[in-house]
Design a protein around this nucleic acid. Structure first.
Length: 878
DNA sequence: TTCGCCTGCAA
DNA sequence: TATTGCAGGCGAA
């Protein structure tokens, strides 16, 4: 027996939306409902061997029901924006999967489902109708099954109803179910029904009399009395409700079943869309189907012959646009490259073509070319000695500027976003093999990878340049971001020297004290447990010891430091736990963590500085993170003693004084704040004085500290709740502070409001140097999301402009150190601070350069001040 | 093994 | 329910 599956599109999408937490892809498109819909659909397809599948949707046009009854569906809440945007997405996905979507002006999806269900049942098919809506139960027969999925993240359970099941559950037949509804009414569709009759009474009445008409004939016999009276009074309304509730099964539909025949759902088109939506679990279903379906993928021609390789490279002239991916991984080294002809080649370094020769030839080829587009230039500089002035274009950085919210900028993503091409990723080609392994054992896939890794950059170059131009970010790209690549490379290559023995000593001291604390804690708790497990710790503190708990997290009790701090006086164990936490953090993350990154050959840590991570334009630091080395607590700060300059050198650091607040004063053009900066050394004291109407010299430490908190809050996109949390005051008091602040600095208030309005209008926030950050959250219908968007819109221009400024300074500092052929090296950037390892003879010049370049990186309405220090280790720089 | 969550470090 | 990050440990899948 052939089977037909019919899906109630909006109903299932709705179920999925509310059953699954909001997900979104890198573009900020929400995808949870699409994901949930597909999961339900696949579950059903896996269960039922169906031949035909179609999905019905409602249209945004009045139906005959609206014409009958103006208020029909009048009480229905509007669809949230996050769901609405997914309606076209699911249709797009279904279309790609060659599944027909049915919609018809004047009919609801229910009517389409009812009509088709009846039609195909009559033609001898088994029919399954999938909906989240119980109204559809009236369509159940022996052959037509109504399936109602219950969506959960863990999995989907489905309730099935044939006619008999409806009867079992409601004691009425499917047809009688309509009459039941006519009595009960339906608030979601605004079907009035009869007042005072709910599900129970309706079920009883209809199971006895089988229809509202018969029930009405016996209205005086009805029980309870209220139902009897109301049915008499509202019979007309009940009849009317019955018509509204009846699903049409005789719609005129021009639809051929052949069009719903299930074909190759997992095809290239659907793969492409799901990849764009980042539906990872669903992508698993493709299993190489897409690859198999593909006719032919490009592959790189391997030029092992020296003469051939040279000939190819010599073909590069000042009119050549190149795409390059220089590979140097493990044993393998070679050049994957492509000209505009899209005939990629791979030139391995082997035999006569030594690494040195290949590198030199590659560099000179790049220099000869008109442009050389690469993805992620920085790591390739270890092999290719390219310089700032060479015609190099980093596509990853361009793509980052155009959308800084993505979590990676690999060639496949760039192909997708800027060329509209879906191409297999590195992992798709190589699976888990290293490049060297693949080159040896899987030449075919290696060839594909080399082809796309070099071809995509050259293909994307024009588009990316054009888009930068359109978005007015060309200057930002060319004068800040591209030069910065080289400054960051210099920093990574230089690294920072760490005294391994001192670090180990520090670690073992921690270990001793940790052991003591551990012993104490177990004694106080009366048992051994894992102190590092918030779950176990919560049980001990709040159940066994019965301490009052303030807050719960999603998964249990909160045991965070600020909660524990408030419990300190309840039990001596709390103090011990807090100290234990602090020490184990220092031990694992810093003592042990850092030790693992010290390179034995030069005793230095060469961390990475990432240029395409943050949403605001800041740089991030990884492997290890050198931007969060402890400084606030003395014990933690001691770690800084193990970071030392090399022989003959000294550390010089320079940090901007309150750069973000100064940027704010400038961008807002607030005369009072600008004036405050021109007059006072101590801006927080000055703010306190002005906000609290207190003479400058009489500001109390508490007032100053509150003013400081407000200053911080303003930069972060203030909310009264946030400030109240930070200062442990009531929201009312926090509101008061903010109001006072805005009265003192009206220009700031106006600026922040303007920032939000601009971002809402344009869809993105902008820095002084034109860097953009999309803020899709501003359009959300969810209050929390929207408020978050507002804070982003206030903070991003400030944080981002500060990031722009220090990037400019870094580029200029690094450039001067190089041009003046100095031996001193820029080695760290910590957001508002630069650290240089200076040779003793260059200290004065280094200080001069740092001060000059940092203070003059941008011209603001307030001075950019820099504090400078020198030291024999990082600890001393204070 | 992978991934989400909690926690805590920095600007 | 304050902005931006990174990482370690736990514990479920």
């Amino acid at each position: 027996m052939s089977k037909v599956i019919l899906i109630d599109g909006h109903s299932i999408l709705n179920r999925a939306y509310y059953g699954i937490p909001l997900l979104s892809n890198a573009e900020g498109l929400h995808t949870n409902a699409v994901y949930g819909f597909l999961n339900i659909m696949f579950k059903i397809l896996d269960e039922e061997k169906a031949e035909y599948l179609a999905v019905a949707f409602d249209v945004h046009a009045p139906t005959f029901r609206h014409e009958m009854f103006e208020a029909y569906k009048g009480t229905r809440k509007p669809m949230p924006e996050e769901l609405r945007e997914q309606v076209p997405l699911i249709k797009e996905v279904l279309h790609a999967m060659q599944i027909p979507t049915l919609e018809h002006a004047g009919y609801e999806a229910d009517d389409i489902l009812g009509t088709l269900g009846k039609r195909y049942e009559a033609a001898g098919y088994d029919v399954s109708i999938i909906s989240g809506d119980r109204d559809l139960l009236q369509l159940a027969t022996d052959k037509v099954k109504i399936r109602i999925p219950k969506t959960k993240m863990a999995g989907t359970e489905i309730e099935d109803y044939y006619a008999a099941d409806v009867f079992e559950k409601y004691q009425v037949t499917p047809t009688e179910f309509i009459d039941m509804k006519a009595l009960m009414g339906d608030t979601s569709d605004n079907i009035p029904g009869v007042p005072g009759i709910g599900e129970k009474t309706a079920s009883k009445i209809i199971s006895t009399w089988h229809s509202i008409e018969t029930a009405h004939e016996h209205v005086s016999e009805l029980k309870p009395k209220k139902a009897s009276e109301n049915l008499a009074a509202y019979y007309e309304q009940a009849q009317f409700s019955k018509v509204l509730a009846t699903i049409k099964t005789d719609c005129v539909l021009d639809f051929k079943l052949e069009d719903a025949a299930i074909g190759q759902m997992m095809n290239e088109d659907s793969y492409s869309i799901m990849k764009r939506l980042e539906l990872k679990n669903i992508l698993k279903r493709f299993d190489g189907v897409a690859e198999a379906a593909a006719v032919s993928y490009q592959t790189a021609e391997v030029l092992s012959d020296f003469a051939e390789a040279v000939q190819w490279l010599e073909g590069i002239s000042e009119t050549t646009k190149l795409g390059v991916c220089y590979i140097s991984e493990g044993e393998l080294e070679g050049l994957a490259a492509c000209k505009e002809d899209r005939k990629p080649v791979f030139i391995p370094a082997s035999g006569v073509m030594t690494r040195e020769v290949l590198r030199d030839m590659t560099v000179s080829a790049v220099r000869r070319s008109e442009s050389c587009c690469m993805i992620d230039v920085k790591p390739q500089l270890y092999s290719l000695d390219l310089m700032e002035e060479d015609p190099v274009f980093d596509a990853a950085i361009a793509a980052y500027l155009l959308n800084p919210l993505k979590d990676s900028y690999t060639y496949d993503g760039i192909a997708q976003d800027f060329l509209g091409m879906t191409v297999p990723s590195r992992a798709d080609w190589l699976k888990k093999q290293s490049l060297a392994e693949a080159y040896e054992k899987d030449a075919e896939n290696f060839g594909h990878y080399a082809a796309y890794a070099s071809m995509i950059p050259v293909m994307a170059y024009e588009t990316l340049s054009q888009r930068l131009k359109e978005t007015e970010m060309t200057k930002l790209f060319e004068t800040i971001e591209m030069p910065l690549v080289f400054a960051l490379y210099d920093m990574e290559k230089a690294g920072i020297c760490v005294e391994k023995d001192a670090l180990e000593e520090y670690g073992s001291q921690l270990t001793e004290r940790i052991a003591e604390l551990e012993k104490n804690i177990y004694e106080l708790a009366g048992e051994n447990f894992n102190i590092n497990s918030p779950k176990q710790l919560g049980v001990i503190l709040f159940e066994k010891l019965g301490l009052p708990f303030a807050k719960k997290t999603k998964t249990g009790y909160s045991t965070s430091a600020d909660i524990l701090e408030k419990l300190r006086s309840y039990d001596p164990i709390i103090g011990q736990i807090l100290e234990y936490r602090q020490l184990t953090k220092l031990k694992s993350t810093y003592a042990d963590g850092l030790a693992g990154y010290i390179r034995p050959d030069d005793h230095r840590i060469h961390g990475k500085f990432n240029q395409t991570i943050t949403a605001t334009g800041r740089i991030s630091s990884t492997e290890p993170n050198l931007q969060n080395i402890p400084v606030r607590m003395e014990l933690g700060r001691l770690i800084r003693k193990v970071f030392v300059p090399k022989e003959g050198c000294i550390f010089v650091n320079a940090d901007y004084s309150q750069i973000e607040l100064r940027v704010l004063a400038h961008m807002a053009g607030d005369e009072h704040l600008i004036q405050a900066y021109k007059e006072a050394q101590d801006i927080h004291r000055m703010t306190a004085s002005q906000v609290f109407h207190t003479p400058f010299d009489e500001v109390t430490p508490a007032q100053r500290s509150n003013a400081k908190a407000v200053n911080f809050g303003i930069v972060y996109g203030i909310s009264s709740f946030g400030l109240s949390q930070d200062l442990s005051i009531t929201r009312k008091e926090a509101e008061n502070y903010i109001q006072q602040y805005f009265e003192t600095y009206p220009g700031i208030k106006a600026f922040l409001e303007r920032s939000v309005a601009d971002a809402r209008e344009k869809g993105y926030a902008v820095t002084m140097f034109g860097r953009r950050r999309p803020v899709p959250e501003l359009l959300s219908s969810n209050f929390m999301q929207r408020s978050f968007g507002e804070r982003i819109a206030m903070n991003s221009p400030i944080q981002g402009t500060a990031a722009d400024i220090i990037k400019i300074a870094m580029v200029r500092v690094d450039r001067r150190l190089k041009r003046q052929q100095m031996k001193s090296q820029l080695i760290l950037q910590i957001h508002d601070e630069l650290l240089i390892e200076a040779t003793l003879d260059e200290v004065d010049e280094v200080k001069h350069i740092l001060k000059e370049e940092m203070e003059h990186a941008a011209r603001l309405a307030v001075p950019l001040e820099v504090d400078m220090h020198t030291g024999h280790n990082w600890y001393e720089l204070k």
